[in-house]
């Protein structure tokens, strides 16, 4: 098991592994997302309180879940990159940041669209919303920092440090906003009351969630492949690969 991981961490074997895995993962992502969205948007029953508006959860929940999962993944990759100096982990940081930022933005936008009919306002200074917004800023910070460096290794290590500090920061932000909100917002307490969900509502949600994870996986794999090709463009395995493709 351990040696398998070790072998996988070398750029060429990861590249071929990703090349084989990505199409299957993409097919799974399309099926699961397709099922989740179609079943969720058309066939699932209307919510008795929220009406059709609740259907946005089939996009919103997977996006929000991924915004956090991807940041966690990025922070773990950051620790691995700093401690063991594994090149693949450095590549993962760079590759995960834009994917995570997109899902975070999607979660924010769908959340706002949902908030308008439910709470009567697009934006509420709720702890979840605010920490999601700060999360987006952190993602954008990592992307900006990565783009500013000329040297890829230096960029990856700087991003790794920022990602780790940011990972410590996110729960603190969430907690601080919760505290802040409970202090002064006494008139309108908004509850995200979890509606008890029926099976025909829940199944499409699980489908959409799995699909979104697979989709994020595919785009992370493809991004990592691209970053690897660019970083290793002078290495023999890349040259051989390109020669193979050209032939």
């Amino acid at each position: 098991m351990w040696t398998w991981f070790h072998r996988l961490a070398s750029p060429p074997s990861f590249y071929t592994f990703a090349e084989r895995l990505a199409p299957w993962l993409l097919a799974f992502a399309l099926i699961a997302t397709g099922y989740g969205l179609i079943a969720g948007l058309w066939f699932a029953p209307r919510d008795y309180q929220q009406g059709d508006a609740f259907r946005i959860i089939y996009v919103h929940v997977p996006a929000a879940a991924l915004s956090l999962s991807l940041y966690t993944g990025m922070a773990i990759a950051a620790v691995i990159a700093l401690v063991w100096r594994i090149k693949l982990a450095e590549v993962a940081i760079t590759a995960l940041a834009p994917v995570g930022a997109s899902f975070t933005a999607l979660a924010l936008v769908t959340g706002m669209l949902w908030g308008k009919p439910m709470w009567g306002a697009y934006w509420v200074w709720d702890a979840r919303l605010t920490s999601e917004l700060v999360l987006l800023f952190l993602y954008l910070g990592v992307i900006g920092l990565d783009a500013a460096f000329a040297d890829r290794r230096a960029a990856a290590r700087a991003c790794a440090l920022l990602a780790i500090v940011g990972a410590v920061n996110v729960p603190i932000v969430k907690y601080s906003v919760e505290w802040w909100n409970s202090l002064h917002q006494t008139s309108t307490i908004l509850k995200f009351g979890k509606p008890t969900i029926t099976t025909d509502m829940a199944l499409p949600l699980y489908g959409a969630l799995l699909g979104a994870y697979a989709l994020a996986g595919v785009s992370a794999l493809r991004r990592m492949q691209n970053v690897l090709l660019l970083r290793e463009r002078r290495a023999t395995w890349v040259r051989e690969l390109l020669a193979e493709r050209a032939a």
Partner: peptide, 8 residues
């Protein structure tokens, strides 16, 4: 980089 980290 600094400002989001300083929100709390």
């Amino acid at each position: 980089l600094v400002l989001p980290l300083l929100a709390p």
